[in-house]
Design a protein around this nucleic acid. Sequence first.
DNA 1: TAAAATAATTAGTCAAGACTAATTTTATAA
DNA 2: TTATAAAATTAGTCTTGACTAATTATTTTA
Lengths: 217, 217
Amino acid sequence: MYTLSEENYLKAIYRLAQQTSFKITPTAIAETLGNNPASVVDMIRKLTEKQLITYDKKKGVELSAQGLKDAVLIVRRHRLWEVFLLEKLGYHWDEIHDIAEELEHISDATLADRLDKFLGFPEYDPHGDPIPKANGKVPKPYSVTLTDLKAGDTCRVAAVRDTSSSFLQYLQKLSIGIGTEIQLLEKIPFDNSLVISISGRESTTVSQKFGENILVD
Amino acid sequence: MYTLSEENYLKAIYRLAQQTSFKITPTAIAETLGNNPASVVDMIRKLTEKQLITYDKKKGVELSAQGLKDAVLIVRRHRLWEVFLLEKLGYHWDEIHDIAEELEHISDATLADRLDKFLGFPEYDPHGDPIPKANGKVPKPYSVTLTDLKAGDTCRVAAVRDTSSSFLQYLQKLSIGIGTEIQLLEKIPFDNSLVISISGRESTTVSQKFGENILVD
DNA sequence: TAAAATAATTAGTCAAGACTAATTTTATAA
DNA sequence: TTATAAAATTAGTCTTGACTAATTATTTTA
């Protein structure tokens, strides 16, 4: 299909498009991938030539129909492999992301669909992200974060935005997983820290950054 | 661990060492990988620097202890993934090799062992090749080929040497699989063709090349 | 609006890993 | 044993996808 690099750019652009409503700039892509903006400009040229994206100073980078289709497939594969690693091979929450980053590039045409069937057509991956369907349809992802709540509100954790093992290990330590009930007790105006109660237990304080990475139902 | 290329060279050298008793030359490696001998010489230098192989005009290329260990792990991963693809995802015999060529490079440290356990510690892959154990021990592969038999001998197919889909599809057409009974009726001296009876049915003639790629029990 | 800061781009470089063409070494055959 | 063929090696090139440094555009901010 494409090179590893091309696939990673497509995926990064797709993720940015999902997460933010701002236009997608070379700098934003560079930050996402940990690359130099100059390298990104090169790849933008390449992907534009292959008609996988369009780039316009005003509108930023956008996926073409084909680019979107390809990006969705990569995300589908990633999330299916995560389910496999967790459910079938017994990995933990915080271990699966990096392995799925490799597995998502396996290119066989029928692999994703076979895996999907083998796993029983799961709707969400272990981080709560929706798994794109075989037809390319993507269930609407959760979008309300803990920081969007008002003091006093109670919710359940539906998904996590950051899937790094450092974040997931922190969640583990706090006994937070998908489905955990959280009540927002207070927002500290100074730095937007959040005082929360996890599963009805005594209160804990977490940062704004933490709250922005917890998606709730 | 290593680059894709390095891993493929290690695997190719390992396979050659298993298959032939001749010394392993740059040309032989080049043929195996479909590369130019000049490229092979470059990589021999690189792998020698990394102490994964030794190279001596007299002895040819040999894997070091470390190189052997790494090569065996790659082969272990390849064969385990083949079992997974066939048994769990329902792929056919002739489809799994190429996908496993990609999957074998997934580098997580515990993946092979988890997969092994998940699959129930299989001894052989779908082509009859022995799956190296977690401790690096490799069960002795089958080594007697159809061409080694005498006219009149009967045997069972234990493994196939060539795992290309063209060969496997040919076997499919002849209704030959692992375990199939074959009797060698006659060897044609002119070109070493073999007249065989498959599962006791009427005779078929196959080439010497064919016979060399069927390992029997 | 002009100055300063930030972002985007260009130009040139580098490493990996392939290639071709040319040369040297080794093996085979007359 | 010399001539020829085959194999190995060297030298130089190419592509991919990164980089840095320098330059040009575009935003912010004073």
